[in-house]
């Protein structure tokens, strides 16, 4: 595979983390425009861990996951008292807050003759772990794919057990879930925290592939796209958000015939899907049918 193909595939995989993150919040009943905040937190945490603190890559991943989960959980504690539009605006406000903080956040150190670390609006350059470790792009793509598979396997197992049933029941009608004894608030906070951790894992993988990150990369449009992926792809299965990413990045952004018209096609597609299939292409009814068919 040439480097271009690998980059496109890696982008699809990296956006999938964000898409799954926003999709989890959709399942628990909230529309978040702010998952890019945790992607950014993961990118900066992971970048600082390897580039500035010289920690091993595995530790950097764990620290990013912990930071994403922690921040998302802390934000969720007050935010989950809101719902609907109010929650969406709070998520948006927090994401912009994170971006503004990163714009002034400086933490630079001399490492091996390089000055590295976050430098406010000037960005954070020389996150060089994959070069120092001698990892070629193809291998790194497989590492991203491995992490994505672990995340998706976790969701599939939680669907096969009953974890996703708990999340979906709270998302569909949290008062009814509470009337049946569910601690709806706890389920919502835990789900938001897991979603934040998944976005942060994607963010740190992105930072090490790009080697340079800056606050402007984590703007609102990233969050809106990640949300739209789940809406297009479908709420029924974790492959829904993945399908959304494939359609947008795999087709609209990459194919020449769409060049320049990507956003028009994408916006039209979102509108069309929401009218024709309000819960996405792979919605719950479709998934239930496929499951029945598989069982014979």
């Amino acid at each position: 595979m040439d480097v271009y193909t690998i980059t496109v595939l890696a982008n699809i995989a990296l956006f999938s983390f964000l898409a799954i993150s926003a999709w989890l919040l959709l399942l628990v009943g909230e529309i978040s425009f702010g998952q890019q905040a945790y992607f950014a937190i993961g990118a900066y945490t992971g970048g600082v861990s390897t580039a500035v603190l010289q920690l091993p890559f595995g530790i950097a991943l764990l620290m990013a996951i912990a930071a994403g989960g922690l921040f998302a959980g802390l934000v969720a504690i007050p935010a989950m008292r809101l719902s609907g539009l109010h929650f969406s605006i709070a998520s948006l406000a927090f994401a912009e807050l994170v971006r503004s903080v990163l714009n002034v956040f400086q933490y630079q150190r001399w490492v091996d003759g390089y000055l590295t670390g976050p430098d406010g609006v000037n960005g954070f350059r020389d996150i060089r772990w994959i070069y120092d470790a001698g990892i070629d792009p193809g291998t790194y793509f497989l590492m991203i794919l491995g992490c994505l598979s672990v995340v998706m396997l976790g969701v599939v197992m939680a669907s096969y057990g009953r974890g996703m049933t708990i999340v979906r029941s709270v998302g569909e009608n949290r008062r009814l879930a509470a009337a049946q004894g569910m601690n709806a608030t706890r389920v919502r906070i835990i789900t938001a925290s897991v979603a934040g951790a998944i976005a942060a894992l994607g963010g740190t993988l992105y930072a090490h592939m790009a080697t340079y990150i800056e606050p402007a990369q984590f703007g609102l449009m990233i969050g809106v796209h990640s949300l739209a992926y789940g809406l297009i792809g479908g709420m029924g299965t974790v492959f829904g958000p993945l399908l959304g990413v494939l359609i947008d990045i795999g087709a609209l952004e990459t194919l020449r015939i769409f060049s320049g018209y990507r956003m028009i096609f994408f916006g039209g597609l979102v509108a069309l899907v929401l009218i024709m299939r309000p819960r996405g292409i792979l919605d719950e009814a479709t998934v239930a049918k496929v499951q029945r068919w598989l069982r014979g």
Partner: peptide, 26 residues
């Protein structure tokens, strides 16, 4: 948007606070 069986499962298990069975439950 949950199946018939899942609706019943939620009703049956929603009120059980079984932290020790977290892994098996999820």
């Amino acid at each position: 948007n949950l199946s018939v069986a899942e609706n019943l499962w939620v009703a049956q298990n929603g009120h059980k606070q079984r932290r020790q069975h977290f892994i098996s439950r999820w």
